[in-house]
């Protein structure tokens, strides 16, 4: 790996959120699980479906539940030829706003019908999934209303729905950016290269493309020493979600010799109880280098006298 390394990487942000529903959404989802659709009535008499806890016009609490549908009218629609991963139907279908019988608002959902039969104003009917869990997708989709409803597969569950899982997944392609890429190419050569601000002449490591205090672009590259001093630290003794290292370990601020900003890194090869402020350390590189600062596995103590506290006091 060298100067031509491609510093672009995929990144996935993925989590299954746990949604608590509260009484109104909970009842709506419980009804869906039981194969019925309910709306809510506002003080003004308007029936909202999908239900919300409040009248959107006034902010006041909604009053009572009203069964709506399962038949509905398509108010508008669009056709999806190639469904996306997150779409509720995985064959060509329509997204539509459908107004359920008895409701004064429309609800967004999927309609499955031949493309040539899709039309605004068409009558459709909710089709429930066989296995229902208390989700808006318990309605599998709507289909053309033939006047006959399919038999509902009964559901054994009786507990009211109070929560559901909401998995989310976002996919990114992240580029390192010119300043970071230059630094990381140095890392791949086992070099630590800072940047100096032309105005205050301070050196930043990791480098900043813009000096945070002066607001001007940094320009000069400065290869840094790989020895430094621990200015302060903490011993991490608990595991946490997303953690890469096995506790206990020492997370320290390491001020490299000649540098101006501390680097947040690990101090290793030493009993964590012996780590101290003023301790002299040097970088230990990984065998396999990667384009992040993790290529420095940790800093380890070196056989030099501690730096007196007075000299590091100004560096937190």
């Amino acid at each position: 790996m060298g100067a031509d390394v491609e510093l672009v990487s995929p990144f996935v942000l993925e989590y299954a959120y746990k949604r608590s529903t509260g009484p109104v959404i909970g009842r709506f989802l419980t009804s869906l699980r039981d194969g019925r659709i309910e709306g809510v009535r506002t003080a003004a008499g308007r029936v909202l479906c999908p239900p919300v806890e409040y009248d959107p016009d006034t902010g006041e609490d909604v009053q009572d539940f009203v069964e709506v549908g399962p038949c509905a009218t398509v108010l508008t629609w669009t056709w999806i030829d190639a469904p996306l991963r997150d779409h509720p139907v995985q064959v060509p279908f329509a997204f539509a706003l459908v107004q359920l019988e008895g409701a004064d608002t429309s609800m967004l959902h999927a309609v499955c019908a031949p493309r040539e039969d899709m039309a605004t104003g068409m009558r459709v009917r909710a089709v429930f999934r066989d296995e229902r869990v208390g989700s808006i997708t318990d309605i599998a989709h709507f289909e053309i209303d033939t006047g006959v409803s399919k038999d509902l597969v009964p559901n054994e569950a009786t507990e009211p729905i109070t929560r559901f899982k909401a998995p989310t997944r976002l996919e990114y392609v992240v580029a390192a950016g010119a300043t970071t890429a230059e630094f990381l190419r140095g890392v791949l050569r086992r070099e630590l290269i800072g940047r100096r601000c032309p105005s205050c002449e301070k050196i930043y490591l990791p480098p900043r493309g813009s000096c945070p205090t002066c607001g001007v672009r940094t320009t000069e590259l400065v290869p840094m020493a790989q020895k430094g001093t621990v200015t302060t630290f903490s011993v991490i003794r608990i595991p946490f979600e997303g953690q890469v290292l096995e506790p206990p370990y020492a997370a320290a601020h390491v001020l490299l010799d000649g540098g101006d900003t501390p680097l947040l890194h690990i101090v290793g090869d030493v009993d964590v109880d012996l780590v101290r402020m003023g301790m002299r350390v040097e970088a230990v590189w990984a065998e396999q280098l990667e384009p992040t600062l993790a290529s420095v596995r940790y800093f380890r103590p070196i056989d030099e006298p501690d730096v007196p506290y007075a000299e590091i006091r100004g560096h937190v």
Binding site: W77, D86, L97, M107, L108, A110, I136
Partner: peptide, 20 residues
């Protein structure tokens, strides 16, 4: 997050329903 996001509806589809 209760009635719309779980359907995974994309912004182009939303805009298309409005356009129609």
């Amino acid at each position: 997050p209760y009635s719309l996001a779980p359907l995974g509806v994309d912004p182009h589809a939303m805009a298309a329903m409005q356009a129609r």
